[in-house]
Design a protein around this nucleic acid. Structure first.
Lengths: 103, 103
DNA sequence: TTTGACTTGTCAAATTCTGTCCAATGTAAG
DNA sequence: CTTACATTGGACAGAATTTGACAAGTCAAA
């Protein structure tokens, strides 16, 4: 699930308008529309604010937001057909690296 | 292992100078020095050329290069102490996503 | 046809990326 | 010490990308 889709789902299920969210985020409606369709990336601060407004855990949205970014990096870096295996390896190495960091 | 370190290791073990690699990559020595220390990121094209010159599989270097980029995204996006768990979740989700893509 | 929600395209300002140059530092030999 | 060469550091210009704002567009319901 993409962050964009999750935001839309939550917003609609709560009967809120883009206009209302935009106002709270202090951006204009077109910008929010783009964020909600994944055409523009939200800033971390905005993701947190959205979680608050839509009453979900920031953890959930941050994880989705990070996933989008990771997939973007991979997609931009190289084509899947050619480097799929290396992408999977890279994800594994990144995981190991992060696990080994002390908190 | 960072791409930068691997490049340095390979170059030195083969007794090559930065100057020689720079020439083949058509960039100047300071630029190569920076790539080798991880201060600047190589372009994909350069990574492939380096693999060729240093006679290693492009797959190996591309995987390291992708790992660097993934870790960068995560580091820039959020601080580890706070979002380590979400980063790990994101890596898992990205992995699933990529595995499910048809070649 | 009017209204309100949402989307699309464009644009300039800001930011980031890329490579070059020059100067500094390090180092080994004579 | 001096020379010669490898490497690094910092400043910088131009290119490329991102950002936010705006005007105009579509669409659906009333």
């Amino acid at each position: 699930m993409k962050l964009a889709n999750r935001i839309k789902e939550l917003r609609e299920s709560q009967g809120l308008l883009q206009r209302q969210l935009s106002a709270q985020l202090e951006i204009d409606t077109p910008m929010f529309s783009k964020i909600e369709r994944g055409e523009r990336r939200a800033k971390q601060e905005q993701v947190l604010k959205i979680a608050e407004i839509l009453k979900v855990s920031p953890d959930e949205l941050i994880a989705l937001w990070l996933t989008d970014q990771i997939l973007d990096v991979i997609a931009n870096a190289c084509s899947y057909e050619k480097w799929k295996e290396q992408a999977l390896q890279a994800l594994k190495m990144a995981e190991t690296d992060i696990k080994n960091k002390k908190d």
